[in-house]
Design a protein around this nucleic acid. Structure first.
Length: 606
DNA sequence: AAACACTGGTGGAGTGGCAA
DNA sequence: TTGCCACTCCACCAGTGTTT
């Protein structure tokens, strides 16, 4: 591993801005980028620019074209935004871009610089604005291994980075989920389709406006007796207020207004209308300033419901604000805002969903934290030269794979199929010597394993006569079995009630066990569930598997519709599944139902 | 290339008038 | 006397363009 100066790996170039008052310089064909735009970029690559300049504009100033595949790095306002340009682009004067020599991979340099952003910021000079000079940037050194190792490191880091991005997306989706659950339960409240009571906010609880105890008496602020909340402490995304920066003393508290835990603090005076209506709950007693109105809910209001009500109707709340230089939601106006007030029991139900989702979110955030730590240590290793040999590569790859398991929803189709194939191999390997085992049982068990194991293998189960069935997958699985010689497949025909039926018989080969390694790798955490299901159905008739799988499907549908699970609802769902299902009696279905209950094999709650 | 200047946004807090 | 309201000023900061 060598250490090279930036100027040794490429040419550092600056940019410039064509005169903005000259119209003929703007709206041309040449991409032109500013630091602000790079800051808003949420990925590694720049693929377009907001502003374009003309050929004339380009010639009028000293900006230069950077060919695709190089590094854009901002040297001021602020220092440290970076990207790889996928397009030909020029920049304003806030950049020190690098046009790389051929032995250096842009992706690698990207990650190396990203890791050094803090150091580079510290190299900045100037009083009004920190700015990184060209010479300092050129002299800055980064570790540089051989080109293959550069690519290898960039590849690893980008994998880790993708996992982080996916995890963040999952967290965002949880919020989406809550939003849609709210709308589903309470409807679009501006239309009030569900005809709830719609009452003024003052009937939701006590409305309290905050204040600032006299500043000229230092004693009011002389000790940390109680937190004094400002609008800064009301986060955009979190449910609860953050820790206050300023505190009031006991004497300060005498002049102040307070609320208890469970109150909603709402920003009512703000610099811009966007901030008006921002709200968060308290989980402790606090005081707060006059920019904030609080609602201390009465016994008919669930705080979490109130929080989401505000979150969803932000725009409606903002409309109630006055139109002065500052947008103000006055106490009087605030109290008069009309909001829907559904029965407490429904609010509580919603609050429970919120709590569960939040718990999941906490888990996700922890996993995100772990991924970020992983990225940190990976990047630390990469740039200290520990990742350049094959041996160490494996050490690092393993944790990524384990983490990847958490994010099964993001499997590609091909990955999903591969997993399914391994699962099918395992089931077939275990059961192929049983006389009852064939196509139908394989499919039913695949279905049940996928469901009970909570795997998202993207199988497209449809309602077929014999239960949940995905014919395409089954054909593909058979094909792979034969191609790899993992199993031989024979068709046997026989007569049932004068009807010709076909049965599929799988037979092991000496290559059958080859699947095992993959299976163990993919289903480490689900293996227990899978084997339990296999043993459960080993000696059962295909018919039992069929009934259970169909019931499972119907059960899941009922849950999705939020219908209460009852004997009748299940039987009805079962028959609705397919006309052929009439061949089973309600007694048989109920036996299946009992079987599922005793064996704890049914859709679990969200 | 570096320093400087301008624009515009944002949040915090004080003030005076008014009404209960 | 107290609380409310509308407004104003202040401090600070990010971002950008121009001048030295």
């Amino acid at each position: 591993m060598k250490y090279l100066k930036i100027k040794e790996i490429g040419d550092v170039i600056s940019g410039s801005t064509p005169k903005t008052e000259k119209k003929e310089y703007w709206d041309g064909e040449i991409n032109w980028v500013t630091p602000k735009e790079l800051g808003q970029l949420h990925e590694k690559y720049l693929t377009d620019t907001e502003r374009k300049i003309t050929e004339e504009g380009f010639k009028s100033c000293s900006t230069r074209l950077i060919p695709p595949g190089n590094i854009l790095f901002t040297s001021r306002a602020p220092i440290g935004h970076l990207a790889i340009n996928n397009i030909e682009v020029c920049t304003n004067q806030g950049f020190k871009s690098i046009i790389l020599k051929k032995d250096y991979a842009s992706e690698y340099v990207y990650y190396a610089l990203k890791r050094s952003v803090k150091k580079l910021q510290d190299l900045g000079t100037g009083s009004t604005f920190k700015e990184l000079s060209k010479s300092k940037f050129e002299e800055f050194t980064i570790p540089v291994p051989s080109l293959p190792d550069q690519l290898h490191i960039a590849n690893l880091l980008s994998k880790a980075e993708n996992l982080i991005a996916q995890r963040k997306e999952s967290i965002r989706l949880l919020d989406e989920f809550l939003k849609s659950t709210f709308l589903e339960m309470f409807g679009d409240f501006t239309k009030n389709e569900k005809k709830w009571d719609k009452v003024e906010l003052k009937y939701f609880g006590e409305i309290v406006t905050g204040n600032t105890p006299p500043r000229n008496n230092a004693e009011n602020y002389s000790s940390d007796f109680i937190e004094w909340i400002k609008t800064d402490n009301i986060p955009v995304d979190d449910t609860y207020i953050t820790k206050a920066v300023e505190f009031l003393s006991e004497s300060g508290l005498r002049y102040a207004r307070t609320v208890e835990a469970g109150a909603l603090l709402v920003a009512c005076i703000a610099g811009s209308i966007q901030s008006v209506g921002r709200a968060a709950l308290t989980n402790r007693k606090v005081s707060f300033n006059q920019q904030i109105n609080a609602i201390q809910p009465n016994e008919e209001i669930e705080p979490l419901y109130l929080y989401w009500l505000f979150k969803i109707s932000r725009k409606y709340i903002q409309d109630a604000a006055s139109n002065g230089m500052k947008k103000i939601l006055t106490k009087g106006g605030f109290e008069k805002i009309k909001m829907i007030k559904p029965p407490l029991s429904l609010q509580t139900q919603f609050a429970q969903i919120v709590e569960k989702t939040e718990a999941l979110k906490t888990q996700y955030q922890q996993s995100l934290q772990e991924l970020e730590n992983l990225y940190g240590s990976l990047s630390q290793k990469a740039f200290s030269g520990e990742l350049t040999t094959k041996a160490q590569e494996q050490k690092v790859v393993i944790p990524i794979k384990q983490e990847a398991k958490i994010i099964q929803t993001e499997l590609t189709k091909q990955q999903a199929f591969l997993r399914k194939l391994m699962l099918a191999s395992h089931i077939a390997y275990e059961l192929c010597e049983e006389p009852t085992f064939g196509h139908t049982k394989l499919m039913k068990l695949l279905y049940l394993c996928e469901q009970a194991g909570g795997m998202a293998l993207q199988t497209n189960y449809k309602k077929f006569a014999a239960g949940p069935f995905d014919g395409k997958t089954l054909t593909l699985i058979d094909k792979e079995f034969e191609k790899n010689k993992w199993f031989t497949i024979e068709k046997k025909t026989f007569l049932v009630n004068d009807q010709q039926r076909e049965a599929t018989v799988y037979k092991k080969t000496d290559k059958s066990l080859l699947y095992k390694k993959y299976f163990n790798n993919y289903f480490e955490s689900e293996a227990k569930t899978i084997n339990r299901i296999i043993e459960l159905f080993r000696k059962e008739k295909t018919q039992t598997a069929e009934i259970v799988a169909t019931l499972y499907f119907a059960w899941k549908e009922l849950k999705a519709e939020k219908t209460i699970i009852s004997d009748n609802a299940l039987i009805e769902g079962f028959y609705k599944f397919h006309p052929e299902k009439k061949k089973f009696t309600p007694e048989q279905i109920m036996t299946g139902y009992k079987y599922m209950q005793t064996n704890e094999l049914y859709p679990q709650s969200v």
